[in-house]
Amino acid sequence: MDFFLQQTVNAVSLGGTYALLALGLAVVFSIMGLINFAHGELMTIAGYVLMYCGLAGLPFVLSIGLAIGAATVAAVLMERIAFRPVRNASGATMLITSFAVSMVLQVLFQNLISVRSQPVLLPPLLTDSVRMFGFVIGVNKLLSIAATVVMLIFLDWFMKRQKTGIAMRAAAEDFAVARLMGIRANSVIAGAFALSGLLAGVAAVLWVSQRASVDPLMGFTPVLKAFIAAILGGLGSLRGAVAGGFLLGFIEIYLAAYLPPEWQEFRDPIGLVLVVIVLLIRPNGLIPAPALKAHKV
């Protein structure tokens, strides 16, 4: 039982990080129909900011703020420089653009910073653990669960109570009509990117605080996981992204915990088979976007 509870805590923590990642993709997709594969590079940028802040000896809390801020600014710049010129182009064009942005950034990191991974100095507190209700939980895990909860509450409030948030929801449902109602396309899209950058920044802090290093290619794995989670939840649906993220986290952890040893090698493919089964039953994802247009998927 203890083992099960401990693994469940692990699953919630991992699922939460995936949920933040998937939300970042979903926010942009819901409005532009673009899956931004350069989302991972936003995380890398946040990671490098953490690294440089550590080298400069800034307090970690301040570094976190700067890292998240950097990811947000980078996301807005990314939209302005790379995606705005192709905004009305086909989905395929935008997708290729996002791959291009991702590769250009990776090569820039490799050439301007280092091809080798760089250590990030973390406060010792992060690798500590606390005893709660009879089992050991890493501080890192608690923080990641707390950050997920805070971000989800913030996002809910933002989308429901804030003008920009409401405008974004309207744009997600029907961009053309939303524009007729006087909503500015530029500001809504820039807002969506800023929000996705914010989410990437928070996820990056959680991600980097586990691995303690940054390298130019570190964005690939998280964006892949986010993509799977977003598809699983229903592309373009924010609630779906959260559900997909948590489900993916639970699948991964429980498989790692309960598959027999001789099957462990095939953990990833088995996990993906489960994802496919879910999609066979619910082709549009767990919680499909309300405005899902079939041709978009």
Partner: peptide, 10 residues
């Protein structure tokens, strides 16, 4: 490239 080792570590 696996990020999370919590299940194994547990």
């Amino acid at each position: 490239g696996q990020q999370d080792f919590s299940a194994i570590v547990t």
